[in-house]
Design a protein around this nucleic acid. Sequence first.
DNA 1: CCGCTGATTATGTATAGACATACGACGTCC
DNA 2: GGACGTCGTATGTCTATACATAATCAGCGG
Lengths: 253, 253
Amino acid sequence: MATPRASKPNGKAQAAPQALYQRIRADLEEKILSGRWPPGYRIPFEHELVESYNCSRMTVNKVLSGLAAAGVIERKRRVGSFVAKPLVQSAVLHIPDIQAEIAKRGEAYAYELLSRKRRKATKDDLERLGIDKSCDVLVLSCRHIAKGRPFALEERLINLDVVPPASDIDFTRVPPGTWLLGHVPWNEAEHRITASLADDNALKALTLKKPAACLVVERRTWRKNKIITSVRVTYPNDLYQLTARFTPTGLRS
Amino acid sequence: MATPRASKPNGKAQAAPQALYQRIRADLEEKILSGRWPPGYRIPFEHELVESYNCSRMTVNKVLSGLAAAGVIERKRRVGSFVAKPLVQSAVLHIPDIQAEIAKRGEAYAYELLSRKRRKATKDDLERLGIDKSCDVLVLSCRHIAKGRPFALEERLINLDVVPPASDIDFTRVPPGTWLLGHVPWNEAEHRITASLADDNALKALTLKKPAACLVVERRTWRKNKIITSVRVTYPNDLYQLTARFTPTGLRS
DNA sequence: CCGCTGATTATGTATAGACATACGACGTCC
DNA sequence: GGACGTCGTATGTCTATACATAATCAGCGG
């Protein structure tokens, strides 16, 4: 009762310029990234770290849980925590919004609707949307222009069963991607990236000459197991590139 | 002493089939993904969640910190926590190891070293490795074959200043990527993805006919601010594609 | 020698209480 | 009225403790 409490209960909470658990984390990450603790290495037990950092177990537990969530280490009960093998296979891909990307480069941006059709889904449409029974779809084709030069051709399919209000929008001013992003919540997206020779349609829309390689990004966006929209964007090879960066300790900043 | 301890101090710790904080997190995520809590929405304060879930603040804090780390919400002191705008721009890109990818498809894999040269870095090499002063490099060219058909052309540059032992390896049996992965720790990688028309060199190595579009993946791998290796892999367009998936709540499983 | 059982132990989850810090709001003073 | 300081509040971090759980390992009986 009424324990007088000399002063502060911890003696460490506010000492450091930055949070203690962040310093510990940086410490451990350094050991792992430098290779001193190679993949498979068993890192010290929580109680050992508690001793060496002179803090409570909750604090080192927070650090280790974080590293585990980030995929840097793997933990096994009763056994210990181990440095994980870095997986080259995944990286954070940056897929910029077309309009934003062009704006960032400080170039003039223009958008053009080439065609807009509402129709009952064809067999091909149904496959792209991953559904069985027929429904209405909106088929759009449009063009993005940077510095007066065609920059991308966008061919889009919108599932009107999932997004009925889209049928009331004429997409002559607002690109469909922008509208959808602002009006429809989604919870998953999948991208497929391929290279292909431009077909006649693309050649014309992008004003390219005969043998032209293009980067094609196909994206499907889900909301609760239903595909909202499926879009294929074709970029002339010399105007666009994707970059992906990966840091094993991957923290969002 | 020997505090008898009526029973459990919390009344909730072990009640649920799964962890409480995971149920809370799933709960909040559901509200966000379903759109009921749209981007910008201020989610309940910690103390409100404490009340409604009848748990301690540490527990809801863990949930909210996790959501913030995952980029689902943003937190501001004294102000509150808000649903973040989903960023389409980033996704986890899966960049498979060539050999593993082919093996997964159950196809025969073969590897061929086309050329191997050690030389003083040229100006172009230095640029690819992002360094100023000259050094020795290993220049490799090799081919990956699936089902008897050329599947990828790999052109690689290895910085011998960073990886001296590489000069003793003849890469006739082991692909350089595999060897490097197993022997050199790295902490960052960058990928550039483009489409291009196959040049004569690529046409020959991949046995393609004249106008052929290829997907080109360039990867540079760092160790402590120094580039270990720079590699360019060229895939015939019809044999390869990259896929990337993104879930805003992105938890590694 | 095999298989079961119980002890041991590291991690997993949760609590209550404390103090730190940033920042908005509001009131004061010139 | 605008600059400035105080106060309240929500989040950020940390501690000490408690109990749960899973997996290993030693010991024991068959």
